[in-house]
Write a protein that binds this DNA or RNA. Structure first.
Lengths: 223, 223
DNA sequence: CAAATATAATAGTATTACTATCAATTATGC
DNA sequence: GCATAATTGATAGTAATACTATTATATTTG
């Protein structure tokens, strides 16, 4: 079931909306596959252009660099998460329940679906887990930020923080807690695959979401 | 006061111990400055060789790549942190007090000292905050890990987890909690400078350490 | 002092991250 | 249906990066 919506991404991430053409959608679809497979460092526009049987120059007409493409993909992911969050908490009266649903969504694994023809949501999540921090851990972060490219992420953190403040308006660290949970859960997923000594694994069940749900509940004293 | 110790870093990070020669110590000293100033992506061995008035080829005799140099620097940092932790918790009977001292050390800002002639500890911490995740967020992580280059970090997380387990041996997520705290505090320091909407700032006091101390205490129910 | 080792200087290669140009194709407006 | 504009593809080129190789020159050590 395709939702009849499309996720708006900050136009400063791209020269031309990749959603507006077949080539653009191809760039997105195949770049998700390739970044997932090669890793962001080994991915480049020359390889991508060969895969989609286009040219490097054509891709550069959509994105001025692969960093901008990463900003587009992560922006899309956060926009999509915000949309899913809105659905998940709609009509739920209890802020505690809404908060738990939010944390569960933000820390959980995306199951593959086909809500968007050209975007593999599960693969996109793998990219966000492994690569998204490279979008802000660099010297360009301030100038990019001025152009609003992190707005989707900041808004999502704000939205969840507001739920938390409904429960306890005196809590001093709402944004720290939520961004710690989101980024932490990504790291734990990476560690569980590659550096298991840095995490706690049970082969029968996912401990990452339960850990963060418990952490948040204890932090704001929900029993 | 220089401690008469030197931090041992896993030899698989380097071809030749940079501590064993003037050139090696120069590489370390100046690379810390340059990575801090330029960021890891804009830093390279050609620029470094010019700064230290040596040659690219000479630097490559110590480190086979700038990634390996980053692994050396982060390994050194974690070894040094383990040393400081050992001192801070020595002779403290209460595991609660030891845990709080550990979290305070791991989440706090390093004040500039001159314990090591060629290493600026405060600048090295800035590198660890902004760049260290790039050492494991890549496709080479598994092969590097086989060579033990993350051992110092894993050991430190294990050490602190053990303190935590002394307090509550039934706690299910000790490693997750400690690695979340360490990585989280780094991210919050980055966010507080560049993406303040993702964190909570008070201009008069550092909230990062208090937040993580409180988070850990609540997680394992220390009042 | 001879031999081994470390360093410096120089040059070269393959790849990357673009930019520029122009031709071919496709879409649009009348 | 045709002229015009916009998009795309093909090709070439540039500066920088991440190395490798070679040889000469210091420096250390036995």
């Amino acid at each position: 079931m395709l939702p009849n919506i499309n996720i708006q991404v900050n136009p400063n991430t791209h020269l031309k909306d990749p959603n507006s053409s077949e080539l653009g959608r191809n760039i997105i679809a195949k770049s998700i596959d390739m970044i997932d497979e090669l890793g962001f460092e080994h991915f480049n526009f020359r390889k991508l252009s060969k895969e989609i049987k286009s040219s490097e120059a054509s891709i550069y007409r959509y994105f001025t660099s692969k960093q901008k493409l990463l900003l587009y993909l992560t922006g899309w992911y956060w926009g999509w998460m915000e949309y899913k969050l809105t659905l998940k908490v709609a009509n739920i009266a209890s802020p505690e329940e809404r908060l738990i649903r939010a944390i569960t969504l933000l820390t959980g694994l995306v199951e593959e679906g086909s809500n968007f023809a050209h975007i593999s949501e599960a693969r996109l999540q793998k990219i966000v887990i492994a690569e998204s921090s490279k979008a802000y851990l660099n010297k360009e972060v301030d100038s990019e930020n001025e152009f609003g490219v992190f707005a989707d992420y900041k808004r999502l953190v704000g939205t969840v923080s507001d739920i938390l403040l409904e429960i306890d308006s005196t809590y001093k660290y709402p944004h720290m807690l939520i961004s710690t949970v989101i980024e932490g859960s990504h790291l734990q997923r990476h560690f569980s695959k590659h550096l298991p000594k840095l995490t706690d694994i049970d082969k029968n069940e996912d401990l990452i979401t339960p850990f963060y749900v418990e952490l948040v509940c204890k932090a704001i004293c929900i029993k």
